[in-house]
Simulated scan of single mutants.
Amino acid sequence: MDSKPDLARSDTLDLLRLRRSVPPINLDGPGPGAEELDAILTIASRVPDHGKLSPWRFLVIEGDGRLRVGELIAEAYAADNPGADAKRLDLERNRLAHAPLVVAVVSSAAPHVKIPEWEQVLSAGAVCMNLVVAANAAGFATAWLTEWFAYDRRVLDALGLDPREKLAGFIHLGRAREIPSDRPRPILSDIVTRI
């Protein structure tokens, strides 16, 4: 019996080879139900986590919550751009309204006596990627985005983030209306150094 893994034949590897972000404007419902979302978030949280700190958490933004958060985004944008027209403010207001569900991954990395803060940040990034892969494996399409408002303290405060917390990303989940063509990917010889 051959114990070597077959890298050419695996549903997981096929998923990873073909996974593609879908812009939120191309995501429709239905999104994951409560049980599906719980399963996706459970898988998302199974990441390397030195010290078992769980230096991240989830904000599930769904239904009218997407519009309430969108209003906060539009207000912050309008405050910084008093000349913004109604079309632009509507774009900002609807940033989270296209996909049926958005999960914000909050990084709560903090100084620790033993665990480097950088490792905690990387763990939050791993949570985002696990969430994307789990959602895709469950039949949903995703987009992992930040945008300007992920760095705007007014928006973060309104979302209830502690001053030391940051947004690792907004993961938009839905059903792909269309899958965009693949983008150019790195050439291995350009990014791999063998020592």
Rank of each mutant, 00 (worst) to 15 (best):
D157Y: 07
P48S: 07
L53A: 00
L72F: 08
R19P: 10
D64F: 10
A79G: 02
R68S: 12
A34R: 07
D190F: 15
L131R: 00
L16H: 08
W118G: 09
D157G: 06
L27F: 11
V113H: 13
A99N: 07
I171D: 11
D190G: 05
R164Y: 04
M129P: 12
F58E: 08
V102K: 05
E62H: 13
P48H: 00
A84C: 01
L173T: 05
G169N: 05
L159H: 06
L72T: 14
W148C: 01
W118I: 13
E75C: 01
L89F: 03
S108Y: 04
V60Y: 04
L7T: 00
A124I: 02
A143D: 15
R93S: 03
Q120K: 11
A135T: 10
S123F: 04
D14K: 04
R9H: 11
R95M: 06
G31R: 08
A76S: 14
E178I: 12
D152N: 01
V133L: 03
G169Q: 05
I171W: 06
I187S: 13
V106F: 09
R57Q: 01
R19K: 13
R185L: 09
V102H: 05
K114W: 11
V192S: 06
V113D: 11
A137H: 02
L122K: 14
S10V: 03
F140D: 14
G139W: 03
I179N: 10
T193W: 14
D182Y: 00
I195A: 14
A137I: 02
D85I: 01
D38W: 11
D162A: 14
W56K: 08
G174N: 13
V132E: 12
D182T: 00
L67I: 15
R194G: 12
L96S: 09
P48G: 05
R194T: 15
R183L: 12
F170D: 10
L188C: 02
R66F: 03
I187H: 11
G63N: 00
L161C: 01
V121S: 09
S21P: 07
R20G: 10
A110W: 12
G31N: 12
L59P: 07
L7I: 04
R9T: 11
E36D: 09
A39D: 14
Y77R: 07
R9E: 07
K87D: 15
V121D: 00
E35C: 04
W56A: 04
S45H: 06
P24L: 15
D38N: 14
S21R: 14
S189E: 09
A34S: 10
S10M: 11
E71S: 02
S108T: 12
C128L: 13
L72Y: 01
R164N: 05
V127I: 01
E178Y: 09
H112F: 10
I191C: 12
A168L: 05
D90C: 13
A44N: 14
S108Q: 07
A86Y: 06
I25G: 10
A143I: 08
D152G: 05
L156V: 04
E165W: 02
S3N: 10
P111I: 13
P116H: 03
L161H: 03
A126D: 00
A176C: 10
S108C: 08
A134G: 11
P48C: 04
M129K: 13
M1K: 05
K166N: 15
